[in-house]
């Protein structure tokens, strides 16, 4: 199952993946344990002439054991998840690279700050569906929607965040490998939900500068 995980190109993705693996091993072990016991019991204790089932109403010690062990595992798991979650969703590291993504049926409107260096002003430079970012730079995303809820999903970055009309949600990522990554919408948003997608282009620093010079330069003025 693990080999299906898409390649991870973000700085925090490996933390998600290792939690995923950990839960995978725990649940796989539990699954095997329960299934093997079940099949074994079904064979060993199948109905046989002359044998009567054990008359037994339970065993408190056993029950306490199999309550406490899973409880302990699960509590440890949730504490292990807290810090990764806090890192990804509760904080945005300092950055000077910001973009605004406005979702609408059925497109991503991408805006870069214009000459004034600020987002949300008239001189913002806009693109449809294509996001260009430099490598190894914390990218802060101002996520908006104009109509319904969409979800900004970049599988290779382990990044997902719903865009909710009426709010601006801050999110961030940092890509560490240049390339072109698909950027689908992950929340049902109407008949065009399927196929609402864009591309994330991660450039090396030089390539990004070249792209920015060509495309972000204040052409309108």
């Amino acid at each position: 199952m693990l080999r299906w995980l898409p390649e991870d190109v973000s700085t925090y993705g490996h933390e998600i993946d290792s939690l995923f693996y950990l839960i995978y091993y725990i649940t796989a072990a539990t699954f095997v344990l329960v299934t093997v016991l079940m099949i074994w019991f079904l064979i060993k204790y199948r109905e046989q002439p002359g044998r009567r089932a054990i008359y037994n109403h339970g065993n408190t010690t056993l029950e306490i054991i199999w309550t406490v062990i899973p409880a302990a595992i699960l509590i440890v798991l949730s504490f292990m998840s807290v810090s990764t979650w806090a890192k990804i969703k509760r904080t945005v590291p300092p950055t000077d690279f910001e973009i605004q993504v406005t979702a609408k049926q059925f497109n991503w409107d991408i805006a870069y700050p214009g000459a004034d260096g600020k987002l949300g002003t008239d001189d913002d430079v806009k693109f449809d569906n294509d996001v260009h970012v430099p490598i190894n730079k914390v990218v802060r995303v101002h996520l908006k929607s104009t109509d319904v809820i969409h979800s900004f999903f970049i599988p290779n970055l382990r990044f997902k965040q719903d865009a909710v009309p009426g709010r601006t949600i801050m999110a961030w990522f940092e890509a560490k490998k240049p390339g072109k990554y698909e950027l689908p919408c992950a929340e049902l948003c109407g008949f065009g939900h399927s196929g609402m997608k864009g591309w994330l282009h991660v450039h090396s620093v030089e390539d990004y500068q070249k792209w920015a010079a060509e495309n972000l330069a204040p052409k309108a003025q």
Binding site: V34, L37, M38, F41, L42, Y45, R46, E47, Q48, R51, R52, A53, I54, N56, G58, N59, L62, E63, W66, T67, P70, A71, L74
Partner: peptide
């Protein structure tokens, strides 16, 4: 998930030693 765990294990306990 803990009470669900109790259920699954107690189901196993019910099979154990039965005459299935």
């Amino acid at each position: 998930a803990v009470p669900s765990a109790i259920k699954v294990f107690n189901w196993l306990g019910t099979l154990w030693g039965g005459s299935i």
